[in-house]
């Protein structure tokens, strides 16, 4: 028993020590990142002056919101079809393809999609420029499998036979969808959207492959700055991002999960 408790303390210390140290250093006044001199918020103030950083952050949030919305829409279709029709031609292929981005290392997905965008540019002239559009498409593909699983699990759990009962009572397919399925699915749609949003906001590798010269997302910018060292401004950005994550997770736990119960 004692040993298990020790392992728990060790495990959580391991999970949290790096994050806490990072946040502590973001309040360090010193230019030389490693020596803690005294408390200061100057790196946070410096962030507001950094136009490149703010531009990258705005781009990332935009792409995350777009790709989350579309992956939920498409994931909803995929979840419904898998829930309703246990047999259709190509179901195995359909499920397999949905699972590919979950299992595949991101580096392969990025490479695949870049080859697609280049080929279609050569053949059709589209996309004319690689940037937020291509990154959004890639992120929708990346998140689609996760979103579908969340929605399908909720359908299997909540819908039961309600849709069949409604159909027996004469409701049309669209009415069933609008009046029964959608309201029951609301928590799952919200979780799917959030997960997809975070996946997009977090992604460096796929975005690096499919982006063009014009578009630099926040992870791409952070990566280029930390590749060869540490950077006090990045400590501040990172701490802010951790704060955003905590906020989003709390909102999710307080509102979405509570309602689901």
């Amino acid at each position: 028993m004692k040993k298990l408790k020790f392992s728990l303390i060790f495990g959580y210390a391991f999970l949290y020590l790096p994050i806490l140290v990072l946040i502590a250093y973001s309040f360090n006044d010193s230019d030389r990142v490693m020596l803690f001199t005294h408390f200061s918020t100057r790196w946070y103030a410096a962030l507001w002056q950094d136009a490149e950083l703010i531009g990258a952050a705005l781009l990332s949030f935009k792409i995350a919101a777009i790709s989350a919305s579309f992956s939920v829409l498409i994931g909803l279709c995929a979840g419904m079809v898998l829930h309703r029709y246990s047999q259709f031609r190509g179901r195995t292929l359909f499920v397999g393809l949905l699972a590919v981005p979950i299992i595949l290392p991101e580096i392969i997905l990025g490479l695949c999609l870049l080859l697609l965008f280049i080929a279609s540019h050569d053949l059709l002239g589209l996309p004319s420029i690689r940037g937020s559009l291509t990154i959004s498409i890639a992120h929708i593909t990346l998140a689609l499998g996760y979103v579908t699983i969340i929605i399908l699990a909720s359908l299997n759990r909540n819908l039961q036979e309600l849709d069949e009962a409604a159909a027996d009572l004469g409701a049309s397919a669209f009415t069933i969808f609008w009046r029964i399925t959608l309201p029951l699915l609301r928590p799952a749609l919200a979780s799917g959207w959030l997960l997809s949003f975070m996946l997009s906001l977090d992604d460096l590798i796929v975005a690096s492959f499919v982006s063009g010269p014009g578009a630099k997302t926040l992870p791409m910018l952070i990566f280029s700055k930390i590749r060869f060292g540490v950077n006090p401004e990045i400590n501040a950005v990172s701490s802010l991002l951790i704060l955003v994550t905590i906020l989003i997770l709390s909102i999710y736990l307080l509102f979405v999960r509570k309602k689901a119960k």
Partner: peptide, 10 residues
């Protein structure tokens, strides 16, 4: 849920 990149950087 926290950024992967940031966790590695830390």
């Amino acid at each position: 849920w926290t950024s992967f990149l940031i966790r590695v950087y830390s």
